[in-house]
Amino acid sequence: MIEVEHLSKVYGAALAVRDLSFRVGKGEILGFLGPNGAGKTTTMRILTCFMAPTAGTARIAGHDILENSLEVRRNIGYLPENVPLYPEMTVRDYLGYVAALRSVPQNKRAERLEAALDAGKLEDRADTIIRKLSKGYRQRVGIAQAVIHDPPVLILDEPSAGLDPRQRVETRQFIRSLSKDHTIILSTHILPDVQETCSRVVIINKGAIVAEDTPEHLGATRGRSTRLTLAVRRPAGDAAQKLQKIKGVTAAQRQDGDKSAAGGNGNGRDANEHTFLLNVTPDADVREEVARLTVNEGWGLLELHRERNSLEDIFLELTTSGAVDTEET
């Protein structure tokens, strides 16, 4: 449904987007992540035909963004980061205006208007002037305008910004419900939203893709280290040093005195329980070795638990470590 091929964008001497290529299939929700200034908004503006790429192209619903821009725009619903609103209009007038601009047939406008009001949970604010709405409600009007013409492709830039936790959950559910009939690119800094909503993630940094995978697979395979938590009854004084000697363990740290680090507020831990936090390389599975050492040394094994890197860990690592050659032209 969305095919991006070798997309690049240069602003003066700065390369904002560098040779981006990815595809999004029908019914898929793609999380499009990256730090501020990574090129996300530029990419989305190119895909929505607001600006042209310096090189490369993309096809949306089979239409080329350069050759058939109007047809592409008919098939896209876009929520920009700054919600585009006319504050002097009422919500109903604004959505009606957008519906007409997006070529919704006259006989279907009322029906689509009601559907968009429902999508944004705006029924009780339909006749309120937009200037008088809170930030959260304005965001919801932005979501409603993106879906008013029922486009097959949705590009949403920070749809949850400014929403309270309940509204965020509702927005997530709404986006998930749309995935049955829509293809969605979702850009957000709220990573739990991505984990719960997206079937695949593209992470970009300094204009280039640094990771592309499912959130689960990223967690399992990406990142420099994964963590093991070891809880024992009677550790020897040199236990940490012995643990660190196991091949694949990069660091072993005793966590006594910080029970929250050992596992959730210290609930259920007695005074004789001691925890170690082990950093291990991602390709090494050292659990067996750790268990053997613990049993052989008679430390009294209570718990051995492997923690995957969270999407947040992976995001931070990939976007702060210069994972790609980022020299700008």
Binding site: R45, T48, C49, F50, L70, E71, R73, R74, I76, Y78, P80, N82, V83, P84, L85, Y86, P87, V98, L101, R102, S103, Q145
Partner: peptide, 14 residues
């Protein structure tokens, strides 16, 4: 300045 130009030109308008 308000960003609504983005809404206009991502709609099917010349």
């Amino acid at each position: 300045s308000s960003g609504s130009l983005e809404m206009l030109f991502t709609s099917p308008l010349t």
